[in-house]
Amino acid sequence: MGRRIPVPVVNAGSMADIAFLLLIFFLVTTTIETEAGIDRKLPPVQKEPIVIEHKEKNILSVLLDGAGRLMVEGDLTEITDLRTITKAFVDNGGASEHDDGYCGHCKGLGDATSSDNPSKAIVLVKTQRETEYGMYVAVQNELVGAYNELRNREGQRLYQQDYTDMERQYQDPKTLSATKVELKKRIQHLRELYPLNILEPSQQ
């Protein structure tokens, strides 16, 4: 019996077509969503309304009205200037060297009519019901940006690393836990130097 029956070959040509079909389906339905945004922590509910006991000069009032206008300390301002104004206000360090609120790391002008110390400086954001959300986010973005720039500067001075860099590294799952402990300490220290004091009074 020398005759051999040839083994039939399975035609795999259509396999590619099927795979392509599936591929195209997933290509179309895929939305590679990278969600990002501005983090904020809301204050817990208080039974009694908080009365701010701060000097007028420690408060930067930012008002956003329904027509999309921005008022900083009562003056009509372009939103592109907000970051510079906020930085100058927070970093001012108005308290003199002998007072207890003296700010050693501030590089501001030391204007006596502006904030004493970053930990005392408060940014007050007021909105109206008709204020557009896009505008509000832009303002929040500029305020957070101003604080980040100041924290970055101190981060570079103390640890030769940007604050935003540290945060990113801290979030990264590949970072070792030993490094994380050290990073957390540094991040907290920078946050203490420039605490993010943004208040939004509730409307009456």
């Binding site: 990002a36 945004g37 983090d39 809301l42 019901r129 204020t131 959300y133 986010v137 929040q140």
Partner: peptide
């Protein structure tokens, strides 16, 4: 409008979920 957003934030405060993210 911010009015509605502030109302939502107020609701979130009353139930105690305080971490929010303005997704952008």
């Amino acid at each position: 409008n911010m009015g509605l957003i502030n109302d939502i934030k107020q609701e979130l405060r009353t139930i105690g979920t305080l971490k929010i993210n303005y997704t952008t």
